[in-house]
Computed example of a mutant assay.
Amino acid sequence: MMTPFTRGRRTALAFGLAALMAVAATPGEARPGSGSSMGSRGSKTYSAPPSTATAPGAPAPMQRSMTQPGSPMGAPAAPQRRFGGGFFAGLLGAGLLGALIGGGFFGGLGGIASFLGLLLQVGLLVGVVILALRFFRRRRAEPAMAGAYQRSGPAAGPGGPLGGLGGGLGGLGAGLGGGAAAPQARPPQRDEVGIGPQDFDAFERTLGQVQLAYGAEDAPTLRRLTTPEMFGYFAEEIRANAARGVVNKIADVKLQQGDLAESWREGPVDYATVAMRYTLRDAVIERASGKVVETNPPEATEVWTFLRERGGQWVVSAIQQTR
């Protein structure tokens, strides 16, 4: 027969596990890439791009990539998944699993009960803080989002009802001497390809098209504008949103500033890494009701890498977050 102590211990364990899993599963920012660094930069995938006036700090290293570290030309490797990071994996494997089967961290029931009590308190405290932050952020941003997503259906392209790009080369390329931005000290850029105004136009245009296609869940457009690897990541995020019953709507994407970090060639492929600071309206919407359930920061600075086969169009091959 289950003793009261055993029943209480298992109840506490269940609450502790739920709190930990809620923390581990807390979503990050929305937008394509969900606020993480992903994709491939050929042989430079695991090398930090040079800093620029737009992104003076080193971008975050790749968190998801099909490129094998150390491969000379970016040979793909099978993607790997991790649950909750090393801390949570070790915690679940070493202690909580042992408690489930009757053992424990230190072999003593008192030690287990004490640890579980601490674990439960920490988990609940973290959960309350996260919920409070998300509540106040949503209350602060929701009035500005009201009415922005009242129509359903696919998002319009640039210049359409849901907004789009603006400003031309006043944003992208400003770090190369264009636009009216105030002069800023920046390191010299390595441009082996010879990036020109038409290329900057293509980068800015693709930024807006990818964002709007992601918000419209327009798979054919995303496939056309990205590498197969990046399309796979975006499609996975869209499927995850559908499973949650939400859609990530994006509108009014406008580049504010951008400049080239580096460009280079690997065989028949040209690469260009560009830092871009842009504004947008970004919200998570309930599919059934159209209710705004989450809003996200109205500005982002990211480092995008584009590639093209000789004579082909530029497509997105990586997105890295700035620190």
Rank of each mutant, 00 (worst) to 15 (best):
M1L: 10
G8D: 06
G8R: 15
T11N: 09
A12D: 10
A12H: 06
L13P: 13
L13S: 01
M21K: 08
A22P: 13
A22N: 06
E29P: 00
G39I: 02
Q68M: 14
A75L: 12
P76C: 07
A77M: 02
R82P: 01
F88N: 10
A89Q: 09
L92Y: 01
G95N: 05
L97N: 08
L100E: 02
L120E: 03
V122L: 07
V126A: 11
V128Y: 05
F136K: 11
R137V: 14
R140D: 07
A141K: 07
G147M: 01
R151D: 06
S152C: 08
L165G: 05
G166P: 09
G168C: 12
G168P: 14
L169Y: 03
G170N: 13
G177D: 02
G178T: 11
A182C: 08
A182L: 12
P183L: 07
A185T: 15
D191A: 15
G196A: 13
G196M: 13
G196Y: 05
Q198I: 07
T206N: 01
L207N: 06
G215P: 12
G215C: 11
P220M: 11
P220N: 01
T221E: 14
E236L: 08
K249G: 11
S263M: 10
E266C: 11
P268G: 11
V269C: 11
Y271H: 03
A272C: 10
V274K: 00
A275W: 01
M276W: 00
D282R: 06
R287W: 12
P298R: 05
V303H: 00
T305C: 14
T305F: 03
R308Q: 01
S317W: 01
S317T: 15
R323W: 01
